[in-house]
Design a protein around this nucleic acid. Structure first.
Length: 301
DNA sequence: CACTTGACCTGTCCGC
DNA sequence: TGCGGACAGGTCAAGT
């Protein structure tokens, strides 16, 4: 679920809340993919270190510490990050609690809970919880200088929202996947970073391209329009705090409301915004649930 | 090699 | 009501 806009929303919230926080302790629950580092490394390079900055690359969250180690987190599908401020006597509310990622009901209860994979305690008594129902996500520790050498970082494509990323670069990268469908191509993280199922469907609707169209059958002009739509959709989503289907609030008490603005995603059976009398259809493309307007996006030959 | 499918997991929803 | 199966969808490994 968390795609680029969701992780960027998380980054912005944590940047404000975590700066200068000092790590006091960590607890790893049932999370076989997290902290393969030996306990000695975690203790030596995390404990007593303070947060310098919070970065994002693609869908990966990067928390840099003064020890020149970086906490690298991938939320995959159901991961979430929850910050709870020091509150032994102070009542926990939106002013001290930040939650982002895939929402679930447990967020309204006490943490840690059944889905908690990692808990980080800071010296002021606040906590950062990494929760993940399905255990696909992970949290690992790397020397900051080695982060660019991680396999994923080596292979992941350009950031779509960089002004320097234009159709001049986008088109040849997509055409490397000429034999597959346009949806599979933009979901490929080595082509460009950060597009997941929601924004793939939304941007393809925006560019009026059927997701199952072979890349070779999409014109350069259409690809240029598609990139424009990817940028627009992601920019709007970040403004809206990302996508969530259940209610939650971030540090400022705002909801991630992008899905209210979605044109096709999870709107099967509802009317296309461009065609009030045409209903959105759902099918399966590139192994994912896929939403299209059958008039805007005619099925390819 | 290029592309597609399955595995990783758990919770939820739907039909019988 | 209970139960089995489909589904959710990011990424990597395995299969075609």
């Amino acid at each position: 679920m968390p795609e680029l806009p969701e992780v960027e929303t998380i980054r912005r919230g944590l940047q404000n809340l975590l700066l200068t926080k000092v790590v006091k302790n960590t607890t790893v629950y049932d999370s076989p993919k997290s902290f393969p580092n030996d306990q000695h490394t975690v203790e030596q390079f995390l404990y007593g270190a303070n947060v310098q900055q919070v970065r994002r690359r693609a869908k990966v969250l990067l928390i840099d510490f003064s020890s020149e180690y970086t906490l690298v987190t991938h939320l995959k599908m159901t991961g979430q990050v929850v910050f709870i401020g020091a509150s032994s006597s102070v009542k926990t509310d939106a002013s001290v609690r930040f939650a982002a990622g895939h929402p679930n009901d447990s967020m309204l209860g006490q943490l840690p809970d059944r889905s908690t994979r990692v808990a980080i305690e800071f010296s002021d008594g606040s906590h950062l919880y990494f929760n993940d129902q399905r255990k696909f996500g992970w949290m690992k520790l790397y020397p900051t200088l080695e982060v660019p050498n991680i396999d994923f970082m080596q292979r992941v494509g350009p950031e779509p929202l960089e002004d320097s990323f234009t159709s001049n670069e986008f088109i040849p990268r997509v055409r490397r996947r000429n034999g597959t469908t346009i949806k599979a191509a933009i979901l490929d993280q080595t082509v460009l970073a950060g597009v997941g199922n929601i924004y793939a469907d939304e941007s393809l609707w925006g560019a009026k391209i059927h997701p199952a169209t072979r890349v070779r059958d999409v014109t350069d002009a259409q690809l240029a329009e598609l990139l424009t739509c990817i940028k627009a959709v992601m920019t709007l989503s970040i403004e809206k705090g990302g996508s969530t289907d259940k209610n939650y609030v971030d540090a400022e008490g705002k909801k991630g409301s992008y899905l209210q603005f979605a044109n096709v995603f999870r709107r099967e059976g509802l009317s296309c915004p461009r065609h009030p009398d045409v209903l959105i259809e759902k099918s399966r493309v590139a192994g994912r649930g896929t939403h299209v307007c059958p008039v805007c996006q005619p099925v390819p030959e």
